[in-house]
């Protein structure tokens, strides 16, 4: 049973308190997701506002084919793409990133993976579609099926994105440790 479905049904009937309740539950993760892709807290706040305005306007059209949370993250995902398009930054392709064949030093990755500064830096170096996939998997603990729904691509594409994103992330962390970069 989707814990947020009842809120959405009430919102569809104009219940502002249900909107407030849903906002309180989801604003932080949705904002974090937007912020991870825009890296601008003011623009992210505006976009979060737009997302929940759309929830308010479109609640009646929600068909229940996905979880409410997935549906809302999908709205956020598309709005970020619109922002990137306006900035001329969008690149909706799945090119294979240049990953050198040798494996990352996983012991170093384990150490670096515990340093917030290092993790933040390395997630920030990922391309937008890789960063989205990693953020949804590790911040929101979504399944690859849910990430596919949010981003509107096949599950196989998400597995490929995650595979390359993970490789780049581990390589970046390993590199920081190898170069002795302090956390």
């Amino acid at each position: 049973m989707d814990p947020h479905a009842q809120y959405l049904a009430q919102i569809a009937h104009g219940d502002k308190q249900a909107l407030a309740a849903l906002y309180r539950v989801l604003e932080k993760p949705v904002f974090r997701f937007i912020q991870s892709r825009l890296n601008d807290p003011f623009e992210s706040s505006d976009l979060l506002h737009d997302v929940f305005m759309e929830v308010w306007r479109s609640a009646g059209r929600f068909e229940g084919r996905s979880k409410v949370q997935t549906w809302i993250f999908g709205i956020a995902y598309r709005k970020v793409i619109d922002v990137h398009r306006k900035r001329g930054r969008v690149k909706v392709t799945d090119d294979i990133p240049e990953v050198v064949d040798d494996d990352a030093n996983t012991e170093a990755c384990l150490a670096a993976g515990q340093e917030a500064e290092h993790v933040r830096h390395c997630v920030g170096t990922l391309k937008d579609d890789h960063r989205s996939a990693i953020s949804l998997a590790f911040f929101e603990d979504m399944t690859y099926g849910e990430i596919a729904e949010v981003t509107g691509v096949p599950e196989g594409t998400i597995k490929t994105r995650i595979y390359h994103a993970k490789k780049l992330l581990l390589r970046c962390l390993s590199g920081l440790v190898d170069r002795g970069v302090p956390a």
Binding site: F31, H49, F138
Partner: peptide, 15 residues
């Protein structure tokens, strides 16, 4: 470890 570190980050939100 990466997942735990990401989730432990306390981030600002408009609240």
């Amino acid at each position: 470890a990466i997942r735990a570190t990401m989730q432990a980050e306390d981030s600002y939100s408009p609240a």
